[in-house]
Structures are given as C-alpha cells and as structure tokens.
Amino acid sequence: MLFYVVRRAAAGVLLLLVISFLTFVLLSLPGQDVGRTLLGLNASEQAVAAKNSQLGIDRSVLAQYGDWLSGAVRGDLGTSWFTSEDVWTAIGNRLPVTLSIMVGVTLVTGVLSFGLGVWAGVRRGAVDRFVQVFGVAGYALPGFLVTLVLVLVFAVELGWFPAIGYVPLTDSVGGWLSTITLPIIALSIGSVAGMAQQVRSSVIEVMRQDYVRTLVSRGLPMRSVLFRHVLRNASAPALTVLGLQFVGLLGGAVLVEQIFGLPGIGAMTVSYTTRGDVPIIMGLLMVSVVGVVVINLFVDIAIGLLNPKARVA
C-alpha cells in the first residue's frame, strides 16, 4: 500500500513538472516586449532593456524556468510583473474563498450523489427515474446559465441571499454562509447530477455480481450486504468520476466567482490573465493543477483502501 501511494504521488509530481515546464515555455513564446508594456511608449530603450533584465526575461527560457522552478520548490513563486505583489501572497489571500466553495461543493456532491445514487440503484422506481432525468438535465444546461437563474430568483427576486460579495469566515460565520451558499448550490447541481448517475450505475452493476447473490444466500442481512459490500465495490468508479469532476469544477468556479463577485482564484485568473502577467499566471495554473493532483491522489488512496486489487495494479 505504501509503495502504491508513493508511486501515485511520484506520478503526480512528474505531471506537475511536465505541465509547469510546458506552460512556462508556451508563455514565453511570443516574445512580447514586457519592459515596453510596463514602462510605456516614452521610456528609453535603455530603461526598457534594464527593466527586462531586472525581470530576468532577457535570458534563455531554460534559464528562466530553472530559476522559477528552484524558487517554486522553496515556496517562492516570484512577483507580479505589473503590481510587484508577491505571487504566493496574492494567491494566498484569495485561496480561502475558492477553497470554501470547493470543499462545500465536494461535501454536498459526495453526500447527495451517494445518497441518491444508492437509493436509485437499489430501489429503482420513481427515485431512479428522478436521478436519470436530473442527470440529463444537470448535464444539459451550462452551469453558468443555471447560476444566472439562481441569482435572478434567489438573490434578485426573493432577496434571500446577497447577489454579490464575500464575507470571510473569520468576520462572521453567518455572513460567510450566506455568501457562499448560492455559489455552492450553483456548482453542485451539475456535479451531483453527473455523479449520482455514476453511483447509480455502479450500484446496479455490483448488485448483479455473483458474490452479492452468494452473500445474500449466506443469510447476511440486506443492510450489511448493501452498505458493506455493494457500496464498497461501487464507490471506486464513483470516486474516479469525482476526481475528474474536480477539474471541471475549477472552471466552473471561475464563472461562478465572476458572477457572484467573489474575490477568489477564479476571479483573479480572469483579471490577471487579461494583462499577460506571466508569474501570476504560472502561479495560478500551478495552484490549480496541484489541487487536481492532490484530489486525484486522495481518490487513488481511497480506491486503494477500498479495493485491494488496485494496490497491485
């Protein structure tokens, strides 16, 4: 098991390295004159050259990447070209907002989709039809469109929640809840729809397995067949989907933060990328890919714990 975890983690680190290198090279390709953009048209050639060399972008891409990487592993992601902010500080300030939403969505998705999926897979009937219709509907409508409707109904019309803004958890728990509830609901609809479907079909699949019949024939109560055996075997594919969905959720977070005016990573991505601030873009991309890698590592570990065969493979 330990070997399995180490190997998975190593694969994740390798993935991070490759992505960071490719992104860095691609971001450096077009040879924009960053110094000129920063200093304006009136600046002298020397001043521009000096600025470029101060930023280190007059050197080879490989050398720049080496610098960036050696900083990154020490937790130093450089400083913004445009605002001179420390990249890590800038991201760190906004991370709690996005994390609040992501953790909330993951919890809601996990609980609801397992509940609905198992119920639908075992009892079939009306719940099953609901999960299937909901699955199609949740997939059929673009997330941000659903979000707009939610804002319109619950914030603008009914006024139950603020339409925009964010209150940090440390300021007021109630305020924090009221500002993140609607965004979490908005993002959860799609992910619950997709994952409940997955849980449902894996539950049905497992219920058809020979060993379930044999366990029933041994006089085990249905409850324990269901919650010990069926659930355990059905959750591995569902968890894999959860890992995949997380990537999509990051994209969803960008839109949702923009709509609700939440000062998170997503909104930050929108505002900084329009200016081509490479250190910030690198930092943001790395933080989100690290998020994906970590989530997938958790999923892999969970699957390894649930399914002894996966540890060998």
């Binding site: 993935l15 490759v18 992505i19 992104t23 691609l26 971001l27 390709l29 077009p30 995949l244 990537v247 999509g248 990051l250 994209g251 969803g252 960008v254 839109l255 997503g266 991505t269 929108v270 990328t273 329009t274 200016r275 081509g276 601030d277 490479v278 873009i281 943001l284 991309l285 989100s288 890919v289 994906v292 890698v293 997938n296």
Partner: peptide, 18 residues
C-alpha cells in the same frame, strides 16, 4: 492524463493572455 489534469477554463484564460 496530462491533458485531463488541466482545468480547461484556466488554461484558456492563460492562453488568451498570450
């Protein structure tokens, strides 16, 4: 695997910057 670890929205935003 590499492509699937990339959040599309964020990559697109980064690409737009360039």
């Amino acid at each position: 695997n590499l492509l699937m670890a990339l959040p599309a929205m964020i990559v697109l935003l980064a690409a737009r910057a360039i």
